[in-house]
Design a protein around this nucleic acid. Structure first.
Lengths: 245, 245
DNA sequence: CGGAGCGTTGAAAGCCCTCAACGTTTGTGG
DNA sequence: CCACAAACGTTGAGGGCTTTCAACGCTCCG
């Protein structure tokens, strides 16, 4: 299988036909390896290709005046990190890697052709941007309504669910190559408070985060604390799960 | 002019050709008038038509365990409040009116036809969902990085810019039919603290919010406090502002 | 005219931040 | 392979922003 193997797996399974996989694979101009902690796209940049994360971890963020970032999204393999740039043409935020990452590039010309000739694949690309929006909404909820423990729990639940969907969770452990500073920037907390709160979750056996990975000790408790409901990830239904329209 | 007059005006001007306006108008099944403070769609609902807000004000929100809501979006005339439902098929949040509102309904069958026969209009619909996502991102920033005054300032700047884009601001005054409770639910604050913070903004002559409207006294200061930059609204460029691809 | 919702204000408590110091891990060059 | 530095993680103390609880005035509408 090619580099698109994970595409949309975290976002509704069994969605791509063999032909569609082939079309997507042939649309790829090249595969790049990006160094860790590198900025891929800056706010305001005109983008002419879109980027599928194949392996590694990336994020999107906005800078604040005080020098800290606000993370907007955390990306796992199979995610397009900037498909919205195809339509919006310039990005309103930065995109960066967390660790060394392999990415597949698809020129927007190629996407034009997909839009024209492969309506169902076009639909899937649109759908993937809408799933980003659904996650954005849940991040708004997390920041607006939850306390520190809730925010961390909710974040961990989301990443765990998405990692599970792409087959990267075993024994309730998955890679989470984020520093406490990063996690703080995702959850609107200082790294100090992230540290204290993660300690509490660890001491209570609910989750253990550190050394580049996370272990979920009590998924039920974690979901309760984070008021987490995976509905918004639309993992249960492929885009044509029910075809009655 | 029909009921689609404001569509996308707040989201890049001069975007619709006469033919496209006509197609959109003819896709409308009916126009409903919805009472104030009514829930239009509930989380999980299967949606079979999309809703264009013609007149009034609406919002989208998620409920928290404590009984409070987290607003996810505030909608002004010209916004589709649930175009993402066309692709996702069920909604992951509630949709409600703030005040009595007129909405135009377009069955998803009709959208199918638009997708098939009017690629540029299809593109515009996709674009409008991407602008929602861009606003979501800015809401994440607001909640994650700004203090109470900053959040209110940022929110007011956004609504002011969007109201201006649809010609609904005069003498720096625009309708804002939200209670302090509503504003708190948008900005992750209690209504008590919203009250105190709005008072400060009023006393300093920066903004005056109340009695169903907002008056911007010092837009520059407001933007500074809210770290607001209207780039993300993509108001300056229609979807084909530059056609080099 | 009465009540309900909304807006306003005060006091006290709590959650999280800031500042600071120190321990631990990681990575790099000698 | 070791030594060192830099980044990351950990912990404590104090302070500040926001919440909570409570009370009261105002406005609008039935």
């Amino acid at each position: 299988m090619g580099v698109t193997g994970d595409f949309l797996r975290g976002r509704g399974r069994d969605t791509l036909s063999a032909e569609e996989v082939s079309v997507l694979e042939q649309a790829i101009d090249r595969v790049d390896t990006l160094p860790p902690r590198s900025v891929v796209t800056r706010r305001g940049d005109r983008v002419r290709e879109s980027t599928l994360l194949v392996e590694g971890a990336m994020c999107r963020y906005l800078d604040a005046r005080d020098g800290y970032r606000q993370l907007l999204a955390y990306h796992v393999p199979g995610d397009f990190v900037d498909m919205h740039g195809y339509t919006l043409r310039r990005l309103d935020h930065d995109v960066a890697t967390i660790v060394e990452s392999r990415v597949a590039r698809i020129a927007h010309d190629r996407v034009d052709a997909i839009m024209r000739d492969h309506p169902r694949l076009a639909w899937l690309l649109w759908r993937s941007t809408l799933l980003d929006a659904a996650m954005h909404r849940e991040w708004i909820f997390r920041l607006g309504r939850l306390d520190a423990a809730g925010r961390l729990a909710h974040f961990l639940c989301e990443v765990a669910a998405r990692m599970r969907a792409i087959g990267r969770v075993s024994d309730d452990v998955f890679a989470l190559p984020l520093t406490q500073q990063d996690i703080g920037e995702a959850c609107g907390l200082t790294s100090v408070h992230v540290n204290r709160t993660l300690r509490r979750l660890r001491e209570e056996g609910i989750a253990d985060v550190g050394r580049g990975e996370a272990r979920i000790g009590d998924a039920k408790q974690l979901a309760r604390i984070g008021e987490f409901d995976a509905d918004y990830l639309y993992l249960d239904d492929g885009p044509w799960a029910d075809t009655d329209r």
